[in-house]
Design a protein around this nucleic acid. Structure first.
Length: 213
DNA sequence: TAGGCCATCTGGTCCT
DNA sequence: AGGACCAGATGGCCTA
C-alpha cells in the first residue's frame, strides 16, 4: 500500500519547518533586513559583504532544514515499516490461533491476550498429561467435564479449532458453560475452576480440553 | 454521536 | 551519528 502523505503529514512538516530554533534565529536575522528594504541609501562594501554572508548563512540554514526534513521523512518511513512488521507478526500469531467461527478478526489486544491464554491452556494440557503418565487414573487430576484422552494438541489444527457453535451453543462436551471468547477486552477477568485468573479474552482451559483430549 | 480501533507522525531516549 | 524503540497526539473509519 503506497502511503500518501496526509494533510497532517504535510502540515506537521510545515510545522517543523516554521517553528524550529533555527527558524527563530533566522527570524531574528530577518528582523534586521526590513530597514534595508525601505528606501535606505545604497549599502557600503562592508554592508554588501555582510549581506553576502547573511545570504550564505540563510542558504546553509535552508539546507539544514532540508536535511532535517529528509531525516524526519526517513525516520517516519522506518517507523511505518516497523509497525508494519509488528502487524505482520500479529497476523502470523493470529494465523496459528484457533479461528473464530464467524471469521472475526481479533484486535491486537485480543490477539495478545488470547495467545496468552492459549499458550497457558496448552502448557496445562502438557503438564496434566505428564502427571497422568506418572499417576494414571488419578481422578483428582481430571478436569471437570473431562472424559477421555486423545491426540496431542495441534494449534491451528482441527483439534484446537473453535467449536462449531457460538458461545451460547450447548453442544460443547464441556458442561461448565465455557466462554469461548469474550471479544470485549474491557470485560472483567474471571477465575476459572482451577483458580487461574482468566484474562479478558477468555478461552479458558475448558474450551480446549474437550477438543484436545 | 460517542467510543473503540487503527495508522501515522513526531520527539525523546537508548543502543550500536 | 544514525537507527530502533517507545509513548503521546491526531485524525479517519466503523459500529452500537
Amino acid at each position: 500500500m503506497e502511503t500518501v502523505y496526509s494533510d497532517m503529514d504535510t502540515s506537521s512538516c510545515d510545522y517543523s519547518f516554521t517553528h524550529t530554533d533555527d527558524e527563530d534565529s533566522r527570524s531574528s536575522l530577518h528582523s534586521a533586513s526590513p530597514a534595508s528594504s525601505c528606501g535606505k541609501p545604497p549599502a557600503s562594501p562592508a554592508e554588501l559583504q555582510q549581506k553576502k554572508r547573511r545570504r550564505g548563512r540563510a542558504r546553509n540554514e535552508a539546507t539544514v532544514h532540508v536535511v532535517k526534513k529528509n531525516r524526519r521523512v526517513k525516520a517516519n518511513d522506518r517507523e511505518r515499516n516497523r509497525m508494519h512488521n509488528l502487524n505482520d507478526a500479529l497476523d502470523a500469531l493470529r494465523s496459528v490461533l484457533p479461528a473464530f467461527p464467524d471469521d472475526t478478526k481479533l484486535t491486537k489486544i485480543e490477539t495478545l491476550r488470547f495467545a496468552h491464554n492459549y499458550i497457558w491452556a496448552l502448557s496445562e494440557t502438557i503438564r496434566i498429561a505428564d502427571q497422568r503418565q506418572n499417576k494414571p487414573r488419578d481422578p483428582a487430576l481430571l478436569l471437570p467435564g473431562l472424559s477421555c484422552m486423545g491426540d496431542a494438541p495441534s494449534p491451528g489444527g482441527d483439534s484446537c479449532s473453535w467449536p462449531s457453535g457460538t458461545s451460547s451453543s450447548s453442544s460443547s462436551p464441556s458442561s461448565s458453560s465455557p466462554s469461548y471468547c469474550n471479544s470485549d477486552p474491557g470485560s472483567p477477568a474471571a477465575m476459572d475452576d482451577f483458580g487461574y485468573l482468566q484474562t479478558d479474552v477468555v478461552y479458558s482451559y475448558h474450551n480446549f480440553v474437550p477438543s484436545i483430549y
